[in-house]
């Protein structure tokens, strides 16, 4: 800007403290406090969990036992052991099954919404999907307990219906809406010119989808799957209710299992602050935190990579 256009000195007195000035300052301070506190909280939470939890660094736990032993017996009178392998296996099996359910489900749904419908139908369906994503997890747990549980018992003729199958299906259904939404965004980001070009060469709607749109959107789809995994991994209440909550290295989908998250939720209230058990639970918290952080970071990088290429 040229100097000639600067207003004359008299008008530029910066400290006219009228109402506008105060409003300005107040908003500025509020935004600053909000922004900084968000960071402070995250760091604070991390520091707190770390301090409470890093048992095998500062305290009595054995690193190898903690990760490699399937025995989680924190309340044993004479020999408490803190091995999270079985809990980890529980979480992993449930998450894995959830993805087997959610990935095909959500990608098909996204293809349908994004590629095969248009206009009003599409908008209605999108709202519906977002509505599904907002169902509280305790409601899903309730569905697992009262609908899928008897269904599994009847259909497969097993004694208990609260198991990997039940919680996997529940988590899959829970993760599917958000995955659908992200996958649909990925499809939407594929330029219309690609579809037009392919159709002009004689491709049908369906051929356009699987030969052009899905390959072009594959990074976005990968991100959708990763975020779905993160969602299933961190879910607590629904798994607690639908998994059976018994410690097991599962060998079939009809085994009951216990998840890392559910363990924390169920046990933390009954432990003495500062006890070994208490710290073991916090260590589990750190493990969860790091894994979900890694998953989300990967998803983020994948999405960013896609953007850069465009």
């Amino acid at each position: 800007m040229s100097r000639r256009h600067a207003p004359p000195r008299a008008e530029r007195k910066p400290d006219r403290r009228d109402l506008g000035w105060y409003v300005d300052k107040a908003v500025e301070v509020a935004v600053f406090v909000g922004g900084v506190s968000a960071i402070v909280f995250v760091v604070g939470i991390f520091v707190f969990i770390t301090r409470e939890g890093l048992g095998f660094v500062t305290g009595p736990f054995d690193f190898r036992q903690f990760f490699l032993s399937p025995r989680w017996r924190p309340t044993s009178e004479w020999n408490p052991t803190y091995g999270i392998l079985a809990l980890f296996a529980g979480t992993a099996s449930v998450t894995g099954l959830a993805m087997l359910v959610a990935v095909p489900f959500s990608i098909c749904a996204a293809v349908f919404i994004g590629e095969l419908t248009a206009g009003r139908t599409r908008e209605v369906l999108k709202v519906l999907v977002e509505f599904l994503a907002a169902i509280p997890s305790v409601v899903w747990g309730f569905i697992g307990l009262s609908i899928i549980n008897p269904l599994i018992i009847n259909v497969f003729d097993v004694a208990v219906g609260l198991n990997v199958l039940n919680s996997g299906v529940i988590l899959g259904l829970m993760a599917a809406p958000i995955m659908t939404s992200i996958a649909e965004d990925a499809f939407r980001a594929v330029p219309e010119t690609y579809r037009e070009a392919a159709e002009a060469m004689g491709a049908t709607r369906w051929q356009v989808t699987y030969k052009v749109v899905i390959p072009a959107a594959k990074n976005g789809l990968l991100a959708a799957v990763l975020l779905g995994i993160g969602r299933a991994f961190g879910e607590t209440m629904a798994v607690l209710m639908a998994s059976g909550h018994s410690i097991n290295l599962p060998t079939s989908v009809f085994d009951s299992v216990r998840a890392l998250t559910a363990t924390i939720a169920a046990e933390l209230g009954e432990t003495a602050v500062g006890s070994d058990h208490y710290r073991a639970l916090f260590t589990i918290g750190i493990v969860l935190f790091l894994i979900t952080f890694a998953i989300n970071l990967t998803a983020d990088l994948v999405i960013r990579g896609t953007r850069r290429k465009e």
Binding site: T193, Y194, E196, A197, A200, M201, G202, P215, A216
Partner: peptide, 15 residues
């Protein structure tokens, strides 16, 4: 569309 090919204003090769 195979009998009647089309070339667009902006080149639009597939990715």
């Amino acid at each position: 569309r195979q009998k009647v090919g089309m070339v667009f204003q902006r080149p639009n090769p597939l990715p």
